[in-house]
Simulated scan of single mutants.
Amino acid sequence: MEIFDECLRRIDNLEHRARMEEVLNWVIKTFPNLMPVVKWNQPMFTDHGTYIIGFSAAKHHLAVAPERAGMIHFANEIEEAGLEHTKELVRFKWDNPFDYVLLEKMITFNILDKADCTTFWRK
């Protein structure tokens, strides 16, 4: 988890920092084969050198970026959960319970979908 220390220190709100740390630790525990990395000052996880999931902190939410293909695949579930989103990320509000079920589905989808991917991003 030390790899994410600098990213976590940049989150001024201690409750938000604790939530981010909780989510990152959950990913590490649930998907021990993923490699934790920091790119573009954001915590991410990769598998065989390809991007799987990334996280960033904003004032009102924790953003989760499963890449565009993941957003398309889970569009209905994201809408049904009432989560705000863009084409590239889902916004999980700090004051709401975190949806680990959806996060697990997104990560699992990317691991399987990118099993043969040889680039960092999908082409």
Rank of each mutant, 00 (worst) to 15 (best):
T119F: 06
N33A: 13
R91V: 02
F31V: 11
H48S: 14
E67G: 05
E22M: 13
H73G: 12
R122A: 10
T30G: 02
D5C: 07
W121D: 00
E2H: 08
I111T: 03
E6D: 14
N76Y: 08
E80H: 07
F120C: 01
I107S: 06
P66A: 08
W40F: 07
I78R: 15
L112W: 04
R68Q: 09
F4A: 00
R122S: 11
M44Y: 03
H16R: 12
H48N: 15
G82D: 02
E6S: 15
D113E: 15
I72G: 11
F98K: 01
F4E: 00
F120T: 08
W121F: 04
R10D: 13
G49L: 00
A58R: 08
F31A: 05
R68K: 14
P36S: 06
M106D: 11
E2N: 10
N96Y: 11
D116T: 14
G70W: 08
R9G: 05
K29C: 05
P66E: 14
P43M: 01
M106I: 10
E79H: 10
L14S: 10
D95I: 06
V64K: 04
A18K: 15
N25P: 02
D12E: 14
L89N: 10
D99I: 08
F45M: 03
T30L: 05
H85Y: 03
P32C: 06
E21Y: 00
E104L: 05
K114C: 05
E79T: 12
P97C: 04
L112S: 11
M106V: 09
N110C: 01
V23W: 04
C7P: 03
F55W: 03
N13M: 04
N33T: 14
M71K: 10
W40H: 12
K93M: 09
F31G: 02
D47M: 09
V37N: 08
I72F: 10
I52S: 13
D116S: 15
H61N: 06
F31D: 03
A65D: 04
V27S: 06
F98S: 02
F120L: 14
L24S: 02
N33S: 13
F109L: 05
V64A: 01
K29A: 10
R10A: 14
K29G: 06
L112F: 08
V23M: 06
K59Y: 12
V38Y: 05
W121C: 07
E88Q: 11
K105P: 09
M106P: 10
E77G: 00
L8S: 12
A115K: 15
E80L: 13
N96L: 07
A58L: 10
S56E: 00
